[in-house]
Amino acid sequence: MSTSWRDRFEKNFISPEKKLGLDEILEEAHDAYLGWLAASLTAFHSDFNEDQVDQLDRIFQGESRIRSIANDCYNYAINGRFRLAKDAQEQEQMNDDWVCLAILVQSARPGIEEFSLTVRGRPIGVPAKLEQLLFHAQIRALLDFSTVDGFDEESVSVPQFFSQPVPGYLTLKEIALLGQMSERAVRNAAQPAAADRLQTRKEQTQTVVDATEALRWLKGRRGFIATRAD
C-alpha cells in the first residue's frame, strides 16, 4: 500500500482507541462496495439506477467476495489469526484479495463524499471503520515481520501486499492502534513510575519502541491478541 495513502489516513482518519466489531465491518464493507459501484456510475453518467448497480455487481461478482476479504482482514488485524499461504499460487490469490480490499478502501471515500449516495434504500456513509481496519492490519504486519516466525517478506507464505520497510520498531501511535487504546495511555505507560513500564528510545526526533518490547508490552493489554500464523 502506498506511503501517500498511509500518510493521509493516519493523519486525518485514524483514531487508535476506536473499537471495531466484526458485524459492523462486514456491513460497512458491503455498503462501501455498493457505494463504489454507484459512485462510479454517477461519475460517468451523472446518475445511476438500481438496475445498473445490480448489473455491475453481476459483472464483478463482488458482494460476497468483499465481505469474505473483510472478514479475513478482521481476523488478522483484531484477532491475530493469519493463514500462511502454502505455495506461490495461493500467495498470489491471497495477495489479489488484499489488493482488492485496498483498492475499494482507497477509492470509496471520494465518490461517497461527493455524491451523498443512497443504494437499495440505504444511505451510504464513508467506510471509516474499514479504513481503520485495513490500516490496523498493515501495522500488525509491521510488528509481525520483526517478531513472528514464518512471517517473512521473502517467503511465499505472506502476500506481497504486506511488504513494507521494516525498521524494527513501532511509534507510540502504532502501539496505541494495536492495543485499541489512546495514544495518551501509551505515553503514560512509558513514564518511569508506570507499573509495567513501556521501554522507549529515540529514533532521531521520534519516540519509538523496539518491536520485541512492543510485543511484550502489548501482550499485557486487553485490546490486543498476539498473532498466530498457521
Score class of each variant (00 low, 15 high):
Glu131Thr: 10
Lys173Asn: 06
Phe151Lys: 06
Val119Leu: 10
Lys129Met: 09
Leu104Pro: 06
Asp97Tyr: 01
Leu130His: 08
Glu213Met: 15
Gly125Pro: 01
Glu114Arg: 15
Thr200Met: 04
Val148Cys: 13
Phe161Asp: 04
Ala214Thr: 00
Phe145Ile: 01
Val119Met: 07
Asp210Val: 14
Val158Ile: 14
Pro165Phe: 09
Ala195Asn: 10
Pro123Val: 15
Leu170Ala: 08
Arg187Pro: 00
Leu117Asp: 07
Gly111Cys: 13
Glu92Thr: 06
Leu133Ile: 08
Thr200Asn: 07
Thr147Met: 09
Lys202Ser: 11
Gln89Thr: 12
Glu92Val: 01
Ala141Asn: 06
Ser155Phe: 13
Gln191Ala: 14
Gln132His: 07
Val126Lys: 09
Leu130Glu: 06
Thr205Glu: 11
Gln93Leu: 14
Val156Phe: 10
Leu198His: 07
Ala85Cys: 04
Thr200Val: 14
Glu174Ile: 01
Ala185His: 06
Arg184His: 10
Val126Tyr: 02
Ser146Thr: 11
Glu153Pro: 11
Arg184Ala: 12
Gln138Asn: 09
Ala102Cys: 12
Ala189Leu: 05
Asp96His: 11
Glu153Trp: 05
Arg109Asp: 07
Arg197Thr: 05
Trp98Thr: 00
Phe115Leu: 05
Ala185Asn: 11
Ile175Asp: 03
Leu142His: 01
Lys173Trp: 05
Glu213Tyr: 14
Phe115Asn: 01
Trp217Phe: 15
Phe115Cys: 02
Phe151Thr: 06
Ile139Pro: 02
Arg184Gly: 09
Thr118His: 08
Val105Leu: 02
Arg122Asp: 04
Leu142Trp: 04
Ala128Pro: 01
Ser116Phe: 05
Ala88Leu: 13
Lys86Asn: 08
Ile124Thr: 05
Val208Phe: 00
Gln160Val: 06
Phe162Met: 03
Gln160Trp: 06
Ile175Gly: 04
Ala211Val: 10
Phe115His: 00
Leu142Ile: 05
Ala102Ser: 15
Ser107Val: 11
Glu213Lys: 15
Gln206Ile: 02
Glu113Asp: 14
Phe162Pro: 05
Lys202Val: 02
Leu198Lys: 07
Cys100Gln: 13
Ala195Lys: 15
Leu215Lys: 14
Phe161Ser: 04
Asp97Met: 01
Pro159Asn: 05
Glu174Lys: 01
Pro165Asn: 12
Val119Arg: 00
Arg120Val: 00
Leu143Gln: 13
Asp152Glu: 14
Gln164Glu: 13
Leu101Pro: 03
Arg109Tyr: 06
Trp98Lys: 08
Asp210Tyr: 09
Gln91Tyr: 01
Lys173Cys: 02
Ala88Met: 10
Val186Met: 02
Gly121Thr: 05
